[in-house]
Simulated assay, not measured.
Amino acid sequence: MDFPPIREELRGLEPYGAPQLDVPVQLNTNENPYGPSAACADDIAAAVREAALTLNRYPDREHVALRAALAAYLSRDTPHGVTPDQVWAANGSNEVMLQLLQAFGGPGRTAMSFAPTYSMYPEYARDTSTTWVQGRRAEDFSLDLDAAREAVERERPSVVLLPSPNNPTGTALPPEAVGLLCKAAASYEPGGLVVVDEAYGEFRRSGVPSAVELLPTYRNLVVTRTMSKAFAAAGLRLGYLAADPAICDAIRVVRLPYHLSAVTQAAALAALRHAPELLGRVDELRAERDGCVDWLREQGLTVADSDANFVLFGTFADRHAVWQGLLDRGVLIREVGPDGWLRVSIGTADEMMAFKQAMTEVMQTVAARTLGMEAQA
C-alpha cells in the first residue's frame, strides 16, 4: 500500500517553487531589488513590537484598519474611490486567489485562463476540485478578444483569471478586454467572476489603466494586488483584492479563523504609511526594464513587450544551457514560460549590467559551439 494516503490526483507531484540559490545576482523571482529604508524598517519594528504586547489575544479577524488603509491606497487609481467593505486581504495574493476558488469554484464548477500564464492558476483549481480549462494566447502573447469571449461563453466558467500584466510574459490587457469579458461572464446563469490579477500593476507603462476604475461598472469584477512586488515587501506576504462587498462577504465564509496575524496586520499598516518611499523606485525599475528590452532586442533576441518588472526573452534551442551558463557566471534567472524562452527579473543597475555581461559571454559561447557543430557536419 502506498504511503501516505494522499489524494490520487496529487500523488507524485512536486511542490511549486523557484530555485533558491546563493548567487551574487538573483533575478529569478520578480522581487523588488530595493529594500525598505532604515526609517521604514524602524516603523515596522515598532508596530510589530506594539502588536507583540497583545499576542495573547486573537487578531482582528476582519482586519478593519488594514482594509481601510488598502482602500485609501487603491483609491488613487480610480476617480470613484474604493471603500473598506470592497477590500479583502490575505497571506499573499496566492491565498486571495485560493479563497476565491474556494468560494466560487469547487466540484462541478470551472475556472479558466489563457496560456501561457501564471503556473499556479491550475494548481488553485486542482486544490479546490475545480475543473480547469485553458485557452491560448496569440503568438505575441496578446489576448485575442473575440476568441477569449467565445471561449468564456462556451465554457461558462465560474471564475476567469486574467493577469495584467501577465506572468511570465509581462503583457498587459487592453482596456476594452476587461469589460468585454465581464459582460461575457455575466451572460449565462449563474454567471462567473472575472479576476484581473494586477500583482505587477504598479509597473505598468504610462497610459495603461488599472481595472480598479471599472469596479463600479461590473459587479462581477475582482481586482487583486500584492505588496510583494512594487512595495518591496515579498517577505511580508500580504495580498489583497477589491470587489463588490458581496464578494468579500462570500470569501469570509471560507477564510480560516483569524487568518491574518496581528504581526502581519501591524507590519502591513506600517509599510503602507511609507508607500511613497517604497514605491519610489518604481519609475527607476520601469526605465531599467525598458532598457533591458532594448538591449536584448539589439542582441537579435525576441522579447515580449513588458508592463511588469520582468522581461521574457528567447528563443533558444537549448534554453537550459543558457540558464546554466548564466548561473555559472553568478546570475540566476528563471527557466519558465513556453519552450525556448527565459525570464529575467529587473534588478538594480549594477545587477542588470552583470546580467548583460554574462548574457553576452553565454551567447558567444553558444554561437561558437553552433559554428563548431556546423563545421563538423
Rank of each mutant, 00 (worst) to 15 (best):
S119G: 12
Y200M: 14
W132Q: 05
I333H: 03
Y121F: 15
S206Q: 10
Q20S: 11
Q376L: 06
N309C: 12
T217H: 09
F203L: 05
T110W: 10
P338R: 04
C182F: 04
E298G: 15
L296S: 10
F203R: 02
P216W: 14
G192M: 06
A184V: 01
G35I: 08
S210N: 05
A232C: 08
A304G: 07
K183L: 10
V253D: 00
R57C: 09
G12E: 00
R126T: 07
H320T: 13
V152C: 09
C292F: 13
Q134G: 01
L161A: 11
L221M: 11
V263F: 02
V366G: 08
V344L: 07
M227P: 03
A270M: 11
S119K: 10
V253S: 01
L173V: 08
P216R: 13
V311S: 04
P24K: 08
T370Q: 14
P157G: 05
F310C: 09
A267W: 03
E153K: 14
T217S: 12
A287K: 15
A242K: 12
V87K: 01
M227T: 11
V223F: 07
D283G: 14
L332M: 09
S306Q: 11
E139Q: 14
V82F: 05
A243L: 08
A304Q: 10
A243Y: 09
A304K: 04
Q357R: 04
A199K: 04
G239W: 00
P122C: 03
V159E: 03
V208P: 00
V336T: 11
P4V: 09
A68V: 06
A47E: 06
D244I: 02
A147L: 15
L279H: 15
V208S: 13
R286G: 05
M97F: 01
S113K: 04
V160A: 01
T128V: 02
R205P: 00
